[in-house]
Design a protein around this nucleic acid. Structure first.
Lengths: 157, 157
DNA sequence: GTCCTTAAGTTGACTAGTTCAAAACAACGG
DNA sequence: CCGTTGTTTTGAACTAGTCAACTTAAGGAC
């Protein structure tokens, strides 16, 4: 079932290797994983995998557009396979959990700042900061129902 | 003229010290300075100042709301004194220069993501990525007039 | 199937940026 | 002027990530 990754890799001119397949597999099950989470996860299939290799794989995937790197303040870099669409992120201030958000107003509302100061803008990145459901419950335990649907997220190192 | 900083510090319950005044002074002239820039700049007034002290001062200023910390991907943390308004940033992909942008559409257009996944959002942070005027000139030297109004920025370590 | 080229993985040292902890110092209220 | 306590200093440590030399193996050619 993971041979799909092989095709994707070949399609962009990358060789199909075990570290790459493992990393892609981990990313598909951990949508916002940091490098350390990827290393740990990928070792299930490839126990001798080194962090440096994972950094190399992640960089390769990002450079060909198979993966995207995000760096919320205070977290290590996170990687996701959802690329090519215009989506943004919700980040929990407390636990670092990350969730995807489609750009609310369609095209790109914030994409046109009033005064660009001479910059040529090619991307508007939006990060919504707040508290995830689980951390809301911790913050106000008496009045909030605890809902067990939250994403643990990969950003707690 | 910098005694104003003294009042500001006292108003938020912080003691007035030389490192703090120096750091505030540097931040007022370098609107988006990283820690290293602050250390270097503040040493003009206080040559023995250590980086650790600057980190402490910056954290104190941020925690009382006199300064704000931003962390564009790929740059060390930057600090600015412009707080309390809803403004965003333009970041140059090439040189790391940072410029302020007022939120284009008034209140907060992106502040309401369509699906918050259970998060309670308290801030929408927008980063516009692009090329500053100077780096546009470097990228296409033949057809761009070089305009010497650009901000060097403090993000190139 | 085997060989060869070259991309990719491995190993290990190393850096930047930041944080932590204990001891010395100094702001400012009394 | 003195004492309390918040700040600074000093120095070490830590995390995330990078760099470079060497080894391995992917995949095209034969």
């Amino acid at each position: 079932m993971e041979t799909t990754w092989g095709h994707q890799l070949r399609a962009v001119g990358l060789r199909v290797t075990r570290p790459r397949l493992s990393v892609l597999d981990v990313l598909s099950t951990h949508p916002h994983a940091d490098a350390d989470t990827v290393v740990t996860g990928a070792r299930a299939q490839h126990p001798t995998l080194s962090p440096q290799t994972v950094y190399g794989v992640l960089e390769a995937l990002v450079s060909v557009g198979l993966a995207r790197r995000i760096e919320p303040a205070g977290s290590p870099a996170l990687f996701e396979l959802r690329v090519g669409d215009n989506h943004h992120h919700l980040v929990c201030r407390s636990c670092g959990a990350v969730a995807d958000v489609d750009c609310a107003v369609g095209a790109a509302p914030c994409l046109s700042p009033s005064d660009t100061s001479g910059f040529v803008v090619d991307e508007a990145e939006v990060v919504f900061w707040g508290l995830c459901r689980g951390c809301q419950a911790e913050a106000a335990p008496e009045s909030v129902q605890i809902d067990e649907h939250e994403i643990p997220g990969g950003a707690s190192s």
